[in-house]
């Protein structure tokens, strides 16, 4: 085979492989959408990939008979609060770990990385106890704080990595040019760390959006349910309303998808530029 044919074959192979991977990733979503539009066919054998009849009945039902709006509102609140908390702490903490190098801060950097290794199940009981005592139990703000706490170690490290790549001279120059240290940080350094900032905002927002375990444990009243908890309510003792559950799942996933579409441009450059160092 001449090299040209080989390279064409290789490209074709790669294309097919990519297509297959994409198919594997996207099939569950496709199935989710199909099932939300036509409940009957879900358990048919052989499965029908294309629904025979399409109806939006499930969507109408979840919006009229269930508390989807409340879940949506609560989730949006938790996700944005998580994002705000996490970002505020991560940019300041990451900056401190990057710029004020002492034995203490280096030790602390490693310590928070270790804390990332602990599974949520280990922490949730003490968290429950603390939240009960401090009145954060069954509050959305409390849930956001808990969610933020779980993303923070990684977020802080990410920000530290981004700050590490910004030459300290640029900041010193800003101080000589007339900024205070804080001014130099907000005017010069933070804009340069924007890709990192976007990664942290997105990561913490998504975590707050789809987290289930903490939400299940730390929220008790139905009025404070977030979407991920709400989804489980379609499963009752006697039956599972599959079409409604899938319709709700579509509604739940939609904002996250839109959010990702919006930030993915920054996200890709952010993640890769963070990968160069640290």
């Amino acid at each position: 085979m001449n090299p040209r044919t080989t390279s064409i074959l290789a490209s074709a192979g790669l294309f097919v492989l990519t297509l297959a991977c994409a198919g594997i990733v996207f099939f569950p979503y496709y199935w989710m959408i199909v099932s939300s539009l036509e409940a009957a066919s879900l358990f048919e054998w052989p499965p029908r990939l294309v629904p025979s009849s399409v109806t939006l009945e499930a969507y109408v039902r979840i919006f009229t008979e269930r508390d989807v709006f409340t879940w949506f509102k609560n989730t949006a609140f938790v996700a944005s609060s998580t994002s705000v908390f996490c970002t505020l702490v991560a940019i300041n903490g990451g900056y401190a770990l990057s710029r004020f190098r002492t034995h203490a801060t280096t030790g602390f950097s490693i310590f928070i990385l270790f804390s990332q290794l602990l599974p949520a199940t280990l922490i949730v009981v003490p968290l429950y106890v603390i939240f009960r005592q401090t009145g954060l139990y069954n509050s959305l703000i409390g849930l956001a704080i808990a969610d933020a706490a779980f993303v923070l170690p990684l977020a802080t490290w990410l920000m530290k990595g981004f700050f590490d790549r910004i030459p300290v001279e640029v900041e010193e120059q800003a101080m000589v040019d007339g900024c205070t240290r804080i001014g130099a940080f907000y005017r010069i350094v933070l804009p340069l760390a924007l890709p990192g900032l976007v990664v942290v905002v997105a990561m913490s927002f998504i975590t707050g959006w789809d987290e289930f375990f903490l939400a299940r444990t730390l929220i008790s009243s139905q009025g404070n349910w977030v979407f991920s908890v709400g989804l489980t309510s379609f499963e009752t003792q006697y039956a599972i309303a599959w079409d409604e559950m899938m319709a709700a799942a579509v509604v739940f996933a939609l904002p996250a998808v839109l959010f990702f579409l919006f930030v993915q441009r920054y996200l890709v450059s952010g993640l890769t530029s963070g990968a160069v160092k640290g």
Partner: peptide, 9 residues
């Protein structure tokens, strides 16, 4: 500065 420290943005 030696590396000029221009503001890249």
């Amino acid at each position: 500065f030696q590396n000029y420290a221009l503001y890249p943005q």
